[in-house]
Design a protein around this nucleic acid. Structure first.
Lengths: 348, 348
DNA sequence: CTGAAAGCGCTTACAG
DNA sequence: CTGAAAGCGCTTACAG
């Protein structure tokens, strides 16, 4: 393995100069830089990350924490983040919580992340007071996506979940539905975080705005998954007269609902309309009407907001310039996508 | 930040002893170990990864390379791998190729991985001769999943893709189908790798075993995605008389096929049967018949085969014991799952 | 613009 | 079982 000394010797300079030249610091003459680069190239030199980190204090790595990488939203966010990070020369350390509270604590509360990364991205990760304390003691920059709890000094990217659910509900009201059910996440479900609470609020707000009272018997909680949607819908049907429409708190629950309805011999949308929130990859295949949210864009934007200050830091202090959105969350727009799963109620 | 010296001082021992005690080396007396652990606990000491790596030469990190984290198979594999790695105390560096040839080369050919990880996992990653040379020069242990090209000395976990496609085709033959189409990946598609070639071979083999000649006009290539399935099916329908059944090279293509058939006014399975390979999360929702492959299990097993030797190494040389599967690929079983998308042909 | 030297915080033979 | 000391391969003030 060639080391920096080898390059220095070949180029006829000190290791300090090699270090500077290779990192593109401005305090190196063009001629010297050229010689150093040529020598490094010739020797196939690659800097040792551990040595560089130990000496320099930067890891060039970002921790990305997601609840479940297998879910549409999270894998889509991670893909966009991965691309941005690697293009910027950063490595991505992946943490998948998998709904295990114990894992969440190990990642967030122990100093696992300590000295391992330069920055942290938390995607829809529930945060307890103890977590916030632990994160603060890490003293690292970070960003949250789709997070209910703000971390002090960290920017946040998200959509307006209340508005998304209101739009979904309004779409059904506009079609003439009055018996509109809602299925959403279990408050004890680690994965669901506060997202489903906001979406429920939107559902209720829109009903009230239409002069209706939300009916508790039409509001069922389950997990924020396909199976959760199936179970919630089965429960809903078991309660008596079916609704004419269902607002699912996410597309995956909506898909589960479609399965349960089919199994119960009910047709979508003739007997029951279904609308979700997300615009999952497969929403089109299933003909699912939904409220689309820009997942990749949230990831890309969050990555940029995380890295921009880091880059700026190495080029000197940022003067009198506040990154937009560092104090208030950046809200990305959603939009209604009407497909085949919603239609006017039959008796209308 | 407390350092190892602080712990040594408080425990009244040398830093060497602290280092040994904390890593659980056997050459430390129980009493000393207890004192060291107490001191470390009291000071909230956490070892510095970069210092440890530089001095010890181990990174405690594994690189996991996947074509596209957003696809069912890869996110499922990564989730299982992540759990196994973190439980074993390893970090996971994620590389998502995203179908970009340039990225593949950056990851595999440059010394990007050099000194950054202790081991490499390649999931369905295409390998050219130059890639193999680069990987060999890295001199790291590794494992491949679902890989056509073997890396010398690396174990490999996979399913039998030929057999999977044969089973799918046989299912349709058993139902009485004779006009069976096949849609699969584009040979130029980086993502598809050799998987789709094996699956096509299985489709053709099974037809021949039934005394039939594969009809090129019923075999359409596209990308290994939902959209690819839609396009391939549209192309198939444009060619004339529709087949009575379609074998899709993966579930995502099968889902695209179902969309295209619906758009063309054809019912599944009454007019056309469709079968996929994978058992995607949403196959049940769509009622898609398929050949199930154990994605999480492949990930878990590959992670274990990768880490076991590493653990053994630090406890001394492995004597006369060969890890099973290190030389021949480990083949995991698949199974036919019949749902609602396959039925006997109408005219039968 | 460049170099000599200290230092980053550990681990590892080596010696006892 | 334990310690003194060297060394891992860089980066960073500091001085010129």
């Amino acid at each position: 393995m060639t080391k920096i000394d080898d390059v220095a010797r070949l180029a006829g300079v000190s290791t300090a100069t090699v270090s500077r030249a290779l990192r593109g610091l401005p305090t190196v003459s063009a001629a010297t830089r050229r010689r150093v680069l040529a020598a490094a190239e010739q020797l196939d030199y690659e800097v040792s990350p551990s040595a560089s980190r130990l000496a320099g204090g930067r890891t060039g790595t970002v921790a990305v924490v997601v609840p479940r990488i297998t879910r549409w939203f999270f894998s889509t966010v991670v893909e966009a983040v991965e691309e941005y990070l690697h293009e910027s020369g950063y490595d991505l350390l992946l943490y998948n919580l998998g709904g295990r509270e114990q894992v969440r604590q190990r990642v967030l509360r122990t100093a696992n992340l300590h000295k391992r990364v330069d920055a942290i991205m938390l995607v829809a990760t529930p945060l307890r007071p103890a977590d916030l304390t632990a994160l603060a003691s890490l003293d690292l920059p970070g960003v949250t996506i789709s997070s209910g709890t703000r971390v002090p000094n960290w920017p946040c990217v998200r959509i307006d979940d209340v508005a998304a659910a209101r739009t979904a509900t309004r779409h059904l009201l506009d079609l003439g539905h009055r018996r509109i059910a809602h299925i959403s996440g279990d408050p004890d479900d680690e994965l669901a975080f506060t997202t489903h609470l906001d979406r429920r609020r939107g559902y209720q707000q829109e009903l009230r705005a239409a002069g209706m009272q939300p009916d508790p018997s039409l509001d069922v909680e389950s997990t924020f998954t396909i199976d959760g949607g199936t179970q919630a819908t089965a429960e809903l049907l078991a309660r008596g007269e079916p609704p004419t429409a269902i607002v699912a708190a996410c597309d995956e629950m909506a898909m589960g609902a479609m399965t349960a309805l089919r199994d119960a011999g009910l047709r979508v949308p003739q007997d029951v309309s279904v609308i979700g929130i997300d615009d999952h990859d497969l929403a089109g295949v299933l003909g699912l009407s939904t409220i689309a949210q820009p997942a990749a864009e949230q990831g890309r934007l969050a990555a940029r907001m995380l890295l921009d200050p880091l880059g700026a830091r190495s080029l000197g202090p940022i003067v009198g310039q506040r990154t937009p959105g560092r104090d208030s969350p950046v809200i990305l727009p959603t939009r209604l996508v009407v497909r085949d799963s919603t239609a006017p109620p039959r008796a209308h």
